[in-house]
Design a protein around this nucleic acid. Structure first.
Length: 281
DNA sequence: CCGGGCGCCTGTCAGC
DNA sequence: TGCTGACAGGCGCCCG
């Protein structure tokens, strides 16, 4: 499912239900997702008070009044739903199978927060104070943060022969992009996804940098993109899928006025890239 | 270091 | 109505 905008949407939806609340019950239904969950997960979480929620790239970090923060990654199909309480969700997809509910947190307000992940590519872990967590250690800058600049992007592309599409998916270069928003940013920038990164001119990189930030910010405002799995914590869909200009639109008309191109799809390292052959070079 | 490919899992959909 | 293959918002690992 989730790229940065979807994860940020989930984080914002969870925040009012968790921050300042104590976890009174923790129900762990299986020992692992992509990796084993820590053996002391239930012990550490039970009775802990949540001090706040942060996001780093596609990870949610739940700060606790304990010597650990909870780390959550939603993989491809992970969903969070919040139920119960005054602000609880009310229109969750009835087809969500309880079979894939892997972790249920209950707060002192009677709210339940459930992690559902059919494909189990997601992760739950604990981050100890001062720990350089291996999943976070090598992440590049936050694309919406101050550390991400056109110069940083240019330096990361310099001399690289890999397609710009692959480089933007590399979380060490910039952290939080996935297939959707890379395709959309490259379209907006008029850059062909197969161009070698090192072949981009500075005059192309700065606009690309701006389009990456724009498309992410717009998607966050829309609550993310709901294709198959993503829902806001309330159960409500995101709406940015209606704004896609190329993603998933093979055979459709290029939205650029007067272009007349037809959206194409190519495979790049096993994943689909959609683009307009007419206006992306 | 670099680039590319594989595999982890389940669900859905198109085509036969 | 099956069945089969392709494909899906990610990412660590292994290979040359």
């Amino acid at each position: 499912m989730p790229e940065l905008p979807e994860v940020e949407t989930v984080r914002r939806g969870l925040e009012p239900h968790l921050t300042g609340h104590r976890l009174v019950r923790v129900d762990q239904r299986r020992p692992n997702l992509r990796w084993p969950m820590p053996p002391d997960l239930v012990q550490v979480l039970t009775g802990a008070r949540v001090e706040g929620l942060r996001r780093r790239s596609k990870y949610i970090l739940i700060d606790l009044d304990r010597d650990a923060a909870m780390l959550l990654h939603l993989g491809m199909s992970g969903r969070i739903r919040v139920e119960g309480g005054i602000l609880g969700g009310f229109h969750h997809d009835a087809s969500l199978r309880a079979q894939h509910d892997h972790l249920v947190l209950t707060t002192d307000a009677g709210v339940t927060v459930t992690l559902n992940d059919a494909r189990r590519f997601g992760a739950v872990d604990l981050v100890r104070p001062g720990q350089d967590h291996p999943l976070l250690a090598r992440l590049g800058p936050e694309p919406l943060g101050e550390d991400f600049t056109p110069g940083v992007l240019a330096a990361a592309f310099a001399g690289r022969k890999a397609p710009v599409k692959s480089l933007l998916l590399d979380q060490r270069i910039v952290a939080g992009l996935g297939n959707i928003y890379v395709c959309e940013a490259l379209f907006r920038a008029g850059i062909h996804p197969a161009r070698p990164g090192g072949a981009l001119a500075a005059g192309e990189i700065a606009p690309l940098w701006g389009h990456i930030r724009d498309v992410l910010a717009e998607a966050i405002l829309a609550g993310g993109s709901s294709l198959r799995d993503h829902r806001q914590a309330s159960g409500e869909m995101g709406y940015f899928q209606h704004e896609f200009r190329v993603y998933g639109r093979e055979g459709g008309a290029c939205p650029t006025p007067g272009c007349g191109g037809v959206i194409a799809r190519i495979a790049q390292s096993g994943r689909s890239s959609w683009f307009c052959p007419q206006c992306q070079h």
